[in-house]
Design a protein around this nucleic acid. Structure first.
Lengths: 202, 202, 202, 202
DNA sequence: GATGAATGAGTATTCATTCAT
DNA sequence: CATGAATGAATACTCATTCAT
């Protein structure tokens, strides 16, 4: 019950944060759109900042849990393609979240605070347990990098796995920006781009 | 004289907007750093918003004027490479402007306002005259698109110029985001990425 | 049972009011520390203000009832010394209450309200009955004043009982402020001061 | 001009702080009574807290500068009496300030902050210069204590200067509280009390 | 041209109190 | 008897903008 209300508030807030920007969104507006009073917001979230943090952590967790790839440490070619397609899906489904995230990463102070909030959670995770949710980004990066290193054997003499990895990240950034910030996306068109990316890097 | 002062204010403002964010930057701070009084600011610019618009138009003009390519309507392969390298340079030189621009494009209302401000200026330009500054983006896009269409003849059967164009834009977006938002850029590293992009699309 | 709970709440509230201040103490905190819910508080006390009033009246009653001197209307020298020592004890035992009281007396509106609350209760007491609790302060004042008047016979020509009374009250105020607001009281030291006061006025 | 306005605001604020209490006084009310807008307040004082601090420092300075006693390190009997009479005058003239000060000294956190604000100013005073204003309290205390030590020669065998000092401070506290918090003071009456105090301690 | 005093709407946050359950 | 969700008025503070000088 309480959790449902929190989720409702977070959903409404995310929409506003994503479209108007975090600083431009007044608590009053979130409350009004969530159908509650300003004061009640503070019953559920300690502050505007805590609300933001809660939204981000929830989304990050959902995202990384949706990658249920076989975690044996390396990616096959098919798994690599699966990851790319999964990213494509997530960019669509969590569009608002990505807009919010990009907005924050672009702001100097917010970026630092964001990264720090993950570190803190990290230090609380006990050794010997599952990796904290905040370690997923690093783990995934490593798996992808390893993928390109594994390709070296078949890549020819001039194949440079580091550059290939960087180029791939760069392409995915461009893809993400495009997918998240185009108002009307032609899915057929998007599919073509996706295939082209897969074609280059798989 | 008056123009010099305006330029000074715009430079100072751009630095602040880029690093602290447009909304987080107080007029008072800009004025202080420009060595003038708050009130005088309004002698030069009608409002904070007008200041922002002026900065953007000035930067956009500077950028497009720095592409003094042979405007015969189409790009040779060398000119294409030149354009890419020019973009690379501009991303470095106008880093503050790009940060500001990305910051704005990410905000719904700002994005619309930005695009609208170009349209308005556009509608004022009379037919038969030089193209308005705001038409440069469209012109450049067209030239690049044509470049890929011209390559069709030598590109083989499956060559799709539209996809190639989209893929190129996507790569450049990723490249821009990376270049503008990395705190320490290894120029050698950057050169490698650049060459890889040229390698793929030239 | 109900009275016990009320007493518990009042005790907890007094501690908070005394140390954090009346306005700085949130009902929520009192409730939490008393182990009940915020809402239930209002079952026992009409308002924060009513809670404060209840605490004060309870404390005032306890204090004046602890002076179980022989009420024959006048004080012997020994009884006078007993009263002073009793005040000393009460200042120590009811430290929280005194801090709260001084805090309130120092605020214009609170002082008026406090004094009024006693008047009101007073007017409700019927003639022919026991004196209302709120009359104790006045009674005690009168007994002490009489004490000084009685000393006139033995006090010499220049002895002025009114001035002596005022001076005594003044000394007791200074003593109270010191005793209630010193963080670490040296009891030996305090005893010396007490004896000096008794020496002057007994 | 600017200083006059600051002084006006401080005067109005002091009156409100003294009668309604610091926390109970809204900036809005001070502004209204000073005939200015809320926002302008912040042009003159950084925060409500800074306003309070400014008021206190100004008053403390005025008070200690009004004691222009011969600073040869010790007090003659006449100077001692002068000090007492001066204190009496200041309590009357700076009534609002004393109410504010007592109110603050009674609040745990405010007391600490108040004392700390003096320490800070202290550390900024350069060695070899006049004593900082914040050292006056300590200096004055020392002079009074010395006064009682000097009386020891003529005070008889049982004379205890430390107790005498403490008793004097206690009496002055009681006197201060009475003088500052009585709504209508009979000056003749007050003079009698003053003479009695001088009689006991001179 | 140039200043900065002045304004007031807007922001996040707190908290006594009410009331459906 | 008991809870805590819900409200909204109040508070300190910020800032773009105006205007008398």
């Amino acid at each position: 019950m309480r959790e449902e209300k929190k989720a409702l508030i977070m959903d409404v807030a995310l929409l506003h944060f994503a479209s108007e920007g975090y600083f431009n969104t007044a608590i009053r507006h979130i409350a009004r759109h969530a159908g509650i009073s300003k004061g009640l917001m503070y019953n559920y979230f300690e502050s505007k900042d805590a609300l933001l943090t809660a939204i981000i952590h929830k989304s990050v967790n959902e995202i990384f849990h949706s990658f249920d790839i076989n975690r044996d440490g390396w990616l096959s070619e098919d798994e690599f393609e699966f990851v790319i397609r999964k990213i494509n899906e997530i960019l669509k489904e969590k569009r608002s979240f990505w807009r919010l995230l990009m907005q924050l990463m672009i702001q100097n102070d917010a970026r630092e605070q964001f990264l720090k909030s993950f570190e803190v959670q990290d230090s609380l995770s006990h050794p010997g347990h599952e990796p904290g949710d905040n370690q997923y980004p690093a783990l995934m990066m490593k798996m992808i990098k390893d993928y390109f290193y594994n390709k070296k054997k078949t890549g020819g003499e001039n194949y440079d796995p580091d550059s290939e990895f960087d180029m791939f990240i760069l392409a995915m950034k461009g893809f993400a920006v495009t997918r998240v910030y185009s108002d009307d996306i032609d899915e057929g068109h998007n599919e073509k781009l996706l295939n082209r990316i897969i074609g280059i890097f798989k």
